[in-house]
């Protein structure tokens, strides 16, 4: 083994620790009496039992799942329409559209969060889960559209022409040929949208009302009542179990579509 390889492995090991160690510690401490070292009364399910007395925490996870699911559904439909239009048609104002599409991608969430919420409040709309969904659709559309555009471009156009040549109209062609063939791309776009929505805290803290998504709930409890941190560690393991499931799903789809 060369010197440079050893150096690489050391650096990589350090970066892996940087990435995974904190999460492992979080899970470990969720089974501890306190959320600091040393371990006391370890392992204990105390905080998991305590968590049951915090329905707001459980609800926050539910709301998160709900927001992410609705966002994903909408963003994927927007993405399919937009991606198809960008890849296959020559609609009026295509260049303007692509420029516009990238805007939410390169704008800090704080700008969008503040702008949208201050605007909606002035219009008399109060923060709510629906407002979070509206905001999340905005930030996920560019990703789903771009992912699906590249999938549509990669799809051999003569397959669609072949369907039309065999008597299928535009809609039948789309339903029987185009859509089944870009399904892996749709799945990738859906998971991407889901993660973005599921992850988001910076935009959602502006838009959330009394019903909070999980990240917003963690953030606000951490800011207001730091003594409840152990509850949050227990809540984290629930979130993590979803995350691991999602990660495996993503990897499987990547494998299939590759």
């Amino acid at each position: 083994m060369t010197k440079s390889s050893i150096m690489f492995i050391v650096v990589l090991g350090f970066l892996l620790i940087l990435t995974f160690f904190p999460i492992a510690i979080l899970l470990l401490l969720s089974l501890n009496e306190t959320s600091t070292l040393p371990l006391r009364n370890f392992p204990t399910l105390k905080w998991y039992i305590e968590l049951l007395r915090f329905p707001a925490a459980i609800n926050a996870v539910k709301y998160s799942l709900m927001v992410a699911s609705v966002t994903t559904g909408a963003a994927v439909i927007f993405g399919i329409c937009g991606g198809y239009a960008l890849a296959r048609t020559n609609f009026a104002g295509k260049k303007i559209f692509t420029g516009l599409l990238l805007m939410p991608m390169v704008t800090p969430y704080i700008i969008m969060g503040f702008s949208l919420m201050s605007f909606l409040l002035k219009m008399g709309v109060n923060p709510s889960l629906i407002v979070i969904i509206i905001g999340h659709i905005l930030i996920t559309i560019p990703y789903t559209t771009l992912v699906l555009t590249s999938r549509f471009i990669a799809l051999d156009i003569s397959l669609e022409e072949a369907a039309m040549d065999l008597g299928a109209g535009k809609f039948t062609t789309f339903r029987k040929v185009t859509l089944p063939l870009i399904m892996p791309g749709v799945a990738v776009a859906a998971i991407l949208a889901f993660i973005i929505s599921w992850e988001d805290v910076a935009l959602a803290v502006f838009l959330a009302g009394t019903e909070q998504t999980a990240p917003v709930y963690i953030y606000s409890l951490l800011m207001k009542l730091p003594k409840f941190v152990p509850i949050l560690t227990a809540m984290s393991s629930i979130i993590l179990s979803f995350a691991i499931g999602l990660a495996f799903l993503m990897r499987m789809i990547e494998r299939i579509s590759a």
Partner: peptide, 25 residues
């Protein structure tokens, strides 16, 4: 113009949820 219909929802969304609020700010 008909193909424009496909991107119209996205257009509207970005304009209403992004541009108008940013402009109001």
């Amino acid at each position: 113009l008909k193909d424009l219909l496909l991107v119209l929802p996205t257009y509207l969304w970005i304009i209403i949820v992004f541009f108008i609020p940013v402009f109001s700010v």
